[in-house]
Design a protein around this nucleic acid. Structure first.
Length: 575
DNA sequence: GCCGTTTTCGGCCCGACTGTTTTCAGTCG
């Protein structure tokens, strides 16, 4: 039975939670959390690494003990540490840590004094007023706990997709920027790092009069409740449930504060540790040597003061970027203007909403010089997928359109279904008449890993196969990725001379960032495609760029940064 | 529990806000 990284990471997180409740050494707890994070974002299955004879202690944050526990999870599904902890503390107690206002100390008190072991029991106790008399508790915390559980039951407080966050963030920034005395208002946090989902918005404002900004902020008409309000920091919930943290600093601290609040936490900790070794202290007000401020007005000045090259926000996850910045080996990341075309979109012929010419003109208006039309194939009947006859009719239509269009070239393509046995949904001779064939899995998501992998590898063996669309099949927060050996898929793409898509649709953002990095390492080009179903969807390319940057991709790693002439050659299969 | 261009032992990032307290612990980011 294969054990996946996420299961090992979850076990380490659970151990960390339970150790916290026990009041264990905070640094031991952090070691478990660091290890969980390392494993979660590894990209390659730990089990496979072990089978290849890799020494796990070479991974950052994994020492002899944790390497042993990883082996234990693979062998037995759990570890002795977790088993022992669960005998002392009910496992459900860890869930209580997720409730705002409750940390390990209070959860410990609740358990010791009231024998509460679950969210349900806690809610009952809060409703009956049994929490307020506990040491360190009071009426306010009791109400906070009760409302937090009620909000959780209404599914508030979940992470939201980056594109959804943008819909809240952009008008709020505009509102704050217009407040008198505000010099600058920007979104920091995971939003600025272009994470696919964000838990809250972190907004940084530079202004001389923090008090006035705070008043404006809590007066914003979408604010539902104020969680906290201070001189320099406030937190609110919007009516949608989204939490927004606002921090106000003076102009000369902008760089240090922006750096501090962009995170990630793991990146910040690692950098501050590095600074410490050089006798420096970093906080949101600047970089200090022996109490004397030496940098902080701009982010660039902060990096310079600690001897690092500038690290783009998307890379700040403590996944090797600090070492790369130290040795001047960071990639120059791809930007939106590097894109020369888009290789995946739909029209009215299937499930799109605009016609061929509208799509082509919209792509041109976005600065693109080529666009591939890739409708669904017949098997995907809900989208009115194309059969051979309709596809050939569209091919003729595109030929005619290309004769009259200037400034943009329309490619003839298809998003053909990869069938369960790895065959493609349209015959060879038809696919051979196209400029490119985008293959996609739209059915049988639940095949066993080996079978799913074989299916995709076989599809790639097809002589006309060009590009694997949305390679993991996940829909963010809605559908898990199917089980597949992505490392194997990437290697096979290299061997077969085909490519992987990074689908820029905000619900997909698939290829995942860690796999982008793997594709880059293997020399497999990635195509950043909109999967547009209307002319408005070309705007989504920016989210694909964000994801690509998180995956360390440069212009050279991306297929559709190539100008038209070069791209044509790359679309011709060489093997 | 991890880690080492001072170290194999003794460190481990840093500050704001709240609520419960009488000076600060707990939580959060």
């Amino acid at each position: 039975m294969p054990v996946h990284n996420v299961e090992i990471a979850d076990i380490f997180e659970e151990i960390a939670d339970l150790l916290e409740i026990e009041g264990d050494n905070p640094f031991r707890i952090r070691a478990y959390r660091n290890a969980a994070r390392t494993i979660r974002s590894l990209g390659r299955d730990v089990q496979a690494l072990i089978e290849q004879g890799e020494d796990l202690t070479r991974l950052s944050g994994i020492g002899k003990d944790l390497a042993g526990q990883i082996q234990e999870v693979i062998d037995t599904g759990t570890t002795h540490t977790l088993r022992a902890l669960k005998q002392e503390i009910p496992g459900g107690l860890a869930d209580l840590l997720k409730i705002p206002g409750l940390g390990p100390k209070r959860v410990g008190i609740i358990y010791d004094e009231l024998d509460i072991k679950s969210t349900d029991e806690l809610y009952q106790a809060a409703c009956k007023g049994r929490l307020r008399s506990l040491k360190g508790f009071g009426a306010k915390i009791e109400v906070k706990v009760r409302t937090a559980i009620e909000a959780h039951l209404q599914k508030k407080g979940r992470r939201i997709k980056l594109a959804t966050a943008a819909e809240y963030a952009e008008p709020l920034i505009e509102y704050l920027a217009q407040t008198p005395g505000v010099l600058q208002a920007v979104v920091a946090g995971s939003y600025r790092r272009c994470k696919e989902t964000v838990g809250d918005l972190d907004i940084l404002v530079t202004a001389q009069e923090p008090g006035a900004v705070m008043d404006e902020f809590i007066g914003y008409d979408e604010v539902a409740d104020v969680v906290s309000k201070g001189d320099t920091r406030s937190t609110v919930h919007l009516r949608s449930g989204l939490q927004v943290d606002l921090r106000v600093v003076a102009e000369d601290c902008h760089g240090a504060a922006l750096y501090y609040f962009t995170g990630s936490r793991a990146h910040n900790i690692a950098v501050r540790r590095l600074a410490q070794k050089h006798g420096l202290k970093i906080n949101e007000y600047g970089v200090f040597r022996k109490g004397k401020r030496i940098a902080g007005t701009t982010e660039e000045s902060v990096f310079k003061a600690i001897g690092l090259r500038f690290i783009a926000p998307e890379l700040r996850e403590n996944r090797g970027e600090i070492e790369a910045a130290r040795t001047d080996s960071l990639p120059t990341l791809v930007t939106l203007t590097d894109l020369k075309g888009d290789l995946h979109c739909h029209t009215k012929a299937t499930d799109g909403r605009c016609d061929l010419q509208e799509m082509a003109q919209a792509a041109a208006a976005h600065g693109l010089s080529y666009l591939a039309i890739t409708e669904h194939s017949k098997r995907l009947s809900v989208t009115h997928g194309l059969d051979q006859k309709r596809l050939l009719r569209q091919v003729d239509e595109i030929d005619r359109l290309n004769e009259k269009l200037t400034g943009i070239r329309v490619f003839k393509g298809i998003e053909v279904d990869i069938l369960e046995d790895g065959g493609l949904d349209l015959p060879n001779e038809v696919l051979g008449r196209l400029d490119l064939v985008v293959g996609a899995v739209h059915s049988k998501f639940d095949l066993p890993r080996a079978k799913q992998t074989r299916r995709i590898l076989k599809a790639m063996d097809h002589p006309h196969f060009t590009l694997l669309a949305h390679p993991s099949g996940r829909i963010i927060e809605a559908r898990e990725a199917y089980e597949v050996d992505m490392a194997g898929v990437i290697r096979h793409a290299r061997e077969r001379g085909c490519y992987l898509e990074l689908n820029a649709h905000p619900e997909r953002l698939d290829l995942l960032d860690t796999y982008c990095q793997m594709a880059k390492d293997e020399g497999v080009l990635v195509a950043i495609n909109s999967d547009a179903h209307s002319t408005l969807d070309f705007d989504n390319l920016r989210f694909g760029i964000g994801q690509a940057r998180r995956g360390w991709l440069s212009k050279a790693d991306v297929l559709n940064t190539r100008p038209l002439g070069q791209l044509r050659k790359l679309l011709k299969r060489t093997m």
